[in-house]
């Protein structure tokens, strides 16, 4: 499973960070950082939650 963020769409709302802080981190510089691009499969439900809750539809999961 690979997490992909479209940074043209991302507006750093940090909703993904609330859902899965082990994968997504918005830092004080205002940008989103992906901490694990290929998170373990156990995190799949959280990744799907992050995809659904992202207000700008910037996150997708491949594989």
């Amino acid at each position: 499973m690979r997490v992909v963020v479209d940074f043209d769409k991302c507006t750093s709302n940090a909703v993904c960070m609330a859902v899965a802080p082990e994968v997504f981190e918005v830092r004080d510089d205002g940008y989103l950082y992906i901490l694990q691009e290929e998170p373990p499969d156990a995190l799949r439900p959280k990744m799907e939650d992050a995809v659904r809750q992202c207000p700008t539809g910037a996150i997708s999961v491949e594989g």
Partner: peptide, 12 residues
């Protein structure tokens, strides 16, 4: 106001 990461800590 413009503190997205810090705000999200409060959600939990």
């Amino acid at each position: 106001f413009s503190r997205p990461a810090r705000l999200m800590a409060y959600r939990s």
